Measured scan of single mutants.
Amino acid sequence: MVYKIRDKETGKVYEVTIDEETNEITVYDVKTGKPVKTVNMTIEELKEAGYEVEPV
Rank of each mutant, 00 (worst) to 15 (best):
M1D: 07
G11I: 00
E44F: 10
V2G: 09
D19G: 03
E45G: 08
K4L: 15
D7W: 04
L46G: 00
E20P: 14
E54G: 05
K47F: 11
E21P: 04
Y51A: 02
K34S: 08
E9P: 01
V56M: 13
E44L: 09
N40M: 13
G11L: 03
D29Y: 03
K8H: 05
T32S: 09
K12Y: 10
T38S: 08
I18L: 07
T38I: 10
A49S: 11
V2Y: 15
V53W: 08
G50L: 04
D7M: 04
E44A: 12
Y51G: 01
D7E: 08
G33I: 01
E54S: 09
E21V: 12
E21S: 13
G33A: 05
K8S: 06
V30N: 09
K31C: 15
V16K: 00
G50C: 05
T26Q: 05
V53P: 04
N23G: 13
G50K: 04
K12A: 13
E48F: 09
T42V: 01
T26N: 04
I43S: 02
G50E: 02
Y51C: 08
Y14G: 00
T17P: 00
Y28T: 05
V56I: 12
M41A: 07
V13W: 12
G50R: 05
K34V: 09
V30H: 13
E52M: 07
N23W: 07
G33R: 07
K37S: 08
G11F: 03
E15F: 15
G11W: 03
V39M: 14
E21I: 12
Y51V: 02
R6T: 14
E20H: 11
E9Q: 13
I43W: 08
P55L: 13
Y3F: 12
D29H: 04
K8A: 06
A49H: 11
E24I: 14
M41Y: 07
E24W: 13
I25V: 08
A49D: 06
K47C: 09
R6M: 08
I25H: 01
I18R: 05
V53H: 02
G50T: 03
V27C: 15
E48K: 12
T26R: 08
V56A: 10
T17V: 11
K34W: 10
P35R: 11
G50P: 01
T38K: 12
K37L: 14
E9V: 14
D29F: 03
V16D: 00
D19I: 06
D19N: 15
E9F: 14
M41V: 07
K31V: 15
E20W: 14
V16E: 00
I43Q: 02
L46S: 00
M1S: 08
T42W: 01
V39K: 04
G11S: 03
E52N: 05
V27Y: 14
M1L: 13
T10F: 02
K37N: 07
N40E: 07
T38N: 06
D29M: 02
T26L: 05
I43T: 02
G11C: 06
P55Q: 10
T38V: 11
G11D: 03
K47P: 02
T22C: 10
E21Q: 11
D19M: 05
N23M: 08
T38R: 13
R6S: 05
K34F: 11
I25W: 04
T42H: 03
I43G: 01
A49Y: 10
V53D: 02
G11E: 01
Y14Q: 01
T32V: 03
D29K: 01
K8D: 02
E54I: 12
E54Y: 13
D7V: 04
N40I: 14
E52W: 07
V39Y: 15
T32E: 06
P35A: 12
M41Q: 04
Y28W: 14
G50W: 04
Y14S: 01
Y14K: 00
V16C: 14
Y3W: 10
K31T: 13
I5V: 10
T38W: 14
E48G: 10
K34C: 14
E54K: 05
K8I: 10
I25A: 05
I18S: 02
